[in-house]
């Protein structure tokens, strides 16, 4: 049984991963829903560009995304220095940076799930709500959003799972600092680089698989439950 017990470092990596992924999803959810809504419901010049930008992290090498974040959001980057000056918010080499990198990488999955869900909502219901006296924003919160909840939930879980597995952008942007940015995949990678790390690497490997599986099953069960409720 000794072999299955996690070391303190491994526990730290696991809890940091959950923390970072949680914040990545919570922080990007409002923006994700807003972008999905805009993409699903509006036509405007430059829409294809927005769509492309959102999906970019899905197809770019993660190291490119990480480096771009470092250039833009780092301590001397144009956005990073501005945030530091105005809000005292710094992303460089901290868990916040890891959360940002995870959020950016998971964003396309989140937006995609929510957008598909919004597109499947009957716009006739939204029109009906307007004739009943609801302004567009109220229609969104009382009709559209409740109806897309299954999609939002699926997106959240997918994005959370994607954040947990984030590696390339994180290590490029905020490096591999124990307790700050050394999430599960980074800890696993570190263990494979040192002699005698095999057992630890294997344990983290199993945990990663279990977490991912749990997320996928959880999202499936929840969305079925919500679907069932909507159909009465």
């Amino acid at each position: 049984m000794e072999a299955f017990a996690l070391t303190a470092l491994e526990v730290e990596a696991l809890s940091l991963s959950l923390w970072v992924s949680g914040w990545a999803v919570v922080g990007s959810l409002p923006a994700g829903i807003a972008v999905a809504w805009v993409l699903a419901r509006f036509k405007f010049p430059g829409k294809i560009l927005l769509d492309g930008l959102v999906h970019l992290p899905l197809v770019l090498p993660p190291v490119v995304t990480g480096y771009t974040l470092l250039v833009l959001m780092g301590r001397n980057g144009p956005i990073g220095s501005l945030l530091q000056k105005t809000l005292g918010l710094s992303f460089s080499f901290s868990w916040k940076g890891a959360a940002l990198a995870s959020a950016v990488m998971a964003f396309p999955l989140l937006v995609r799930a929510v957008r598909l869900s919004i597109e499947s909502v009957d716009q006739g219901l939204e029109a009906a709500a307007r004739t009943l006296g609801a302004r567009p924003l109220r229609v969104f919160f009382t009709v559209t959003l409740p109806l897309v909840m299954p999609g939002v939930l699926a997106g959240v879980i997918l994005a959370f799972a994607r954040s947990l597995s984030e590696f390339g952008a994180t290590i490029t942007f905020v490096s591999n600092i124990p307790g700050q940015t050394r999430t599960l995949p980074l800890a696993l990678y570190t263990l494979t680089q040192v002699p005698g790390g095999e057992a630890g690497a294997l344990r983290l490997c199993v945990i990663s698989v279990l977490l991912a599986l749990l997320a996928i099953i959880g999202s499936e069960v929840l969305s079925r439950h919500l679907d069932h409720r909507l159909r009465g």
């Binding site: 009957d122 006739g124 219901l125 029109a127 009906a128 709500a129 307007r130 004739t131 009943l132 006296g133 609801a134 302004r135 009709v143 409740p146 109806l147 409720r229 909507l230 159909r231 009465g232």
Partner: peptide, 20 residues
């Protein structure tokens, strides 16, 4: 005037009740 300001009730062919 936008629909919500018109005070006009609309009964649609397909009902359009809110399923949730």
């Amino acid at each position: 005037l936008p629909p919500e300001k018109r005070s006009i009730g609309y009964i649609f062919q397909d009902g359009r009740l809110f399923p949730h």
